[in-house]
């Protein structure tokens, strides 16, 4: 499933959160959205999942305009993981994961598989509010997995922010598996090193504008990042051909 953004722009009152963003995320890829705070990452994510009606331009999923889709139609194509999920009821972990099937036929096997993939089977009967924030984030991931159609679109906003290193790594491996199985993954990330390690493509946002988009290796170039973040970066390659980014002091 491909995502295409055409001249997307959005304003919250007097604040212009997104300006003329045109980009494409393809099936089979992990596309990382990176940028400083308030650069428009979350607004872009909200535009893709139809949570806002952009004032300019449009978002398309498989060439269908998101704005023309009902919530149910969208739920059958894409799943969403917010930065922090708040559930206003004392549901169990399993009940929260089951919510992922709200617009879809009940599928116990999918729910159990989602719980297992996020290592939540032992916690399934625990009340969701009693979990740590990191555990809750894994439950939200499992809820999205229970919903995600085959070769569907998974949109995530900082999914690993509250996770420990092992579970963050596990989460990114899962995203890799989904992309390798033909799904499209669009993920907003603050951790540039993790983005460099896992993303195939990247969109770099700066003050609501798309500063760069394309292969992650090109977009996450130290000089480009320094221009946007105001911090120096060093690139370190590993034996598997992947690279990491290390922040250093700002260059004079």
């Amino acid at each position: 499933m491909n995502v295409r953004l055409e001249h997307l722009g959005h304003r919250y009152g007097a604040v212009e959160a997104l300006r003329d963003v045109t980009a494409e995320a393809r099936a089979g890829n992990i596309t990382a959205i990176v940028g400083p705070n308030a650069s428009g990452k979350s607004t872009l994510i909200r535009g893709i999942i139809g949570a806002i009606r952009p004032q300019w331009g449009a978002a398309f999923i498989d060439n269908l305009p998101v704005a023309s889709m009902s919530a149910r139609q969208l739920a059958r194509r894409a799943a969403y993981v917010p930065q922090r999920s708040v559930v206003a009821a004392a549901f169990t972990v399993r009940e929260v994961v089951e919510l992922g099937r709200y617009a879809l036929p009940r599928d116990v096997a999918r729910i159990e598989e989602a719980l297992a993939r996020l290592e939540l089977t032992d916690l399934a009967a625990r009340p969701y509010p009693a979990l740590s924030v990191g555990q809750q984030q894994r439950v939200t991931m499992a809820r999205a997995l229970a919903q995600l159609p085959e070769r569907g679109l998974l949109v995530l906003d900082e999914p690993t922010a509250a996770m420990d290193l092992r579970h963050a790594e596990r989460c990114m491996k899962l995203l890799r598996e989904i992309a390798d199985a033909g799904g499209a993954v669009v993920v907003a990330m603050h951790d540039l090193s993790m983005a460099a390690l896992w993303a195939d493509e990247a969109w770099l946002l700066d003050d609501g504008r798309l500063a760069a988009s394309g292969p992650a290796e090109e977009v996450l170039a130290p000089d480009r990042l320094e221009a946007v973040f105001g911090v120096g970066f060093e690139r370190v390659g590993d034996s598997e051909g992947r690279f990491r980014l290390l922040a250093s002091s700002p260059r004079a």
Binding site: A51, A71, A75, A89
Partner: peptide, 21 residues
């Protein structure tokens, strides 16, 4: 009942699972 269960999620998330909130 089921819709109200889904409505316990925040608005963006509730919409994303197919609820017309």
């Amino acid at each position: 009942g089921r819709a109200m269960d889904a409505g316990t999620l925040e608005d963006d998330e509730a919409r994303s699972i197919g609820l017309a909130i």
